[in-house]
């Protein structure tokens, strides 16, 4: 959902005004003093602090666990201050770049993703049925892993990535269904994660987005045991992907990701078709295919829960 933001100048004259911060980003900058700008894009920049990467993004890019969301004044683009390699100094109230105040950090609200307050197998079933209406095959991107939204058989023209991912997604589906033992000698969970992690060309490879979607869905649904197992496998495989994606995966291990994906997940769980429609529109705007890759991971988990509801026995909402 686009945010209507009043572009008023920051009272202190600092070009950027931080409005929200994700949980992962907060943990990284909490107590930190300095860092370095590592990447700059049209709407966002990344800074590295003690080995972890945090995103600093325009508020219109949507909230995220790894992100400090910034509102800009009309005449001053705070991103102009970001240059790769520039030193970053952080105080409780200010983020400075190359000794120039860039983003005001006070007050900064902690962003929390949407939660499904009441859901059941019936509402989940309704949500998954609505998905077919709102996300027909033709809407799925040709690239990435959105092709696996409707199961471990890819829809559409196969790509290098979708071919490479197929076996791993099928194995993960079987793991969720209890067909394979993740701790057995086959090591199916670790092998699947190794295959998917870092798979895809961009900043957050499609395989990582898929795994993040699974982790977030397992967490939000309350399938703690499975979340823990998959989280451990992902943690062990983090070196298999780039630094930007590592940050997003670390947040996903804790059950948090981007605003649009959480909105879609909650709409699916609550069986709210209209809400799902607007959530998917927002998801469309997340990266090239990242939104759909993450949703494919989410739906893989939700379908497994439909067939095996005791996955979430420790979840308190399922009736």
């Amino acid at each position: 959902m686009p945010l209507n933001v009043n572009l008023s100048a920051s009272p202190s004259g600092v070009p950027g005004h931080g409005v929200q911060i994700g949980c992962f980003a907060r943990d990284v900058i909490d107590g930190a003093r300095s860092g370095c700008v590592t990447a700059v894009f049209e709407r966002s920049g990344y800074i590295e602090i003690d080995g972890d990467w945090v995103c600093v993004a325009n508020v219109d890019a949507g909230y995220n666990a790894v992100t400090i969301s910034v509102r800009s004044s009309p005449s001053n683009d705070w991103l102009d201050y970001f240059q790769v390699g520039a030193p970053v100094v952080i105080t409780p109230s200010l983020l400075s770049i190359s000794d120039r105040p860039a983003v005001n950090l006070s007050p900064l609200m902690l962003w929390s993703p949407a939660v499904a307050r009441c859901w059941s197998l019936a509402t989940l079933s309704r949500g998954l049925q609505a998905l077919a209406k709102w996300a027909p095959d033709a809407r799925l991107p040709a690239d990435g892993l959105g092709q696996y939204l409707y199961g471990s058989q890819a829809i559409g023209v196969a790509t290098r990535e979708s071919n490479a991912a197929g076996g791993a997604i099928a194995d993960l589906t079987q793991w969720l269904c209890g067909v394979v033992d993740p701790t057995g000698e086959s090591g199916v969970l670790a092998r699947s994660v190794r295959t998917l992690i870092g798979l895809g060309p961009g900043l957050t490879p499609s395989g990582d987005d898929f795994l993040a979607g699974m982790l977030i869905a397992l967490s939000v649904c309350g399938a703690k045991r499975w979340q823990h197992q998959l989280g451990n496998a992902v943690q062990a495989g983090l070196q298999g992907t780039g630094s930007v994606s590592q940050a997003h995966l670390k947040a996903a291990v804790k059950g948090e990701g981007g605003e649009a994906l959480h909105q879609a997940l909650v709409a699916l769980m609550a069986g709210e078709g209209d809400r799902l429609g607007s959530a998917l529109s927002a998801l469309d705007r997340v990266g090239h295919t990242s939104g759909w890759d993450g949703l494919a991971g989410v739906v893989t988990v939700l379908r497994a829960i439909m067939g095996r509801p005791f996955l979430v026995l420790d979840g308190h909402c399922l009736s």
Partner: peptide, 8 residues
């Protein structure tokens, strides 16, 4: 053209 992760 891809990032050089082991999977890629």
């Amino acid at each position: 053209l891809m990032i050089g992760t082991p999977s890629n």
